[in-house]
Amino acid sequence: MVHRMAKPKSSFDASDVVRLGELAGISLAAEDAEALAGALAGHCDMVAPLFEFRLEDAPVATIYDPHWRG
């Protein structure tokens, strides 16, 4: 079975970013929000190919820590 994830949203405006910042607990200056709207869209475009990977092909490492001595 192949799992494909939806392509992330790649268009943002400054008000989107301000709201995201609020959700993250950070108040953003207007000029930062403007710049980050472009940066975030660019980031989404950049990572989109990562979502073409099938999840079962990407192994998840064990959480067991070999140094743990209990």
Binding site: M5, H43, V47, L50, F53, L55, D57, A58, P59, V60
Partner: peptide, 11 residues
């Protein structure tokens, strides 16, 4: 994004 990047890293 972080989760998928970590999986791709393992790959």
């Amino acid at each position: 994004h972080v989760s998928q990047a970590s999986r791709v890293r393992a790959l």
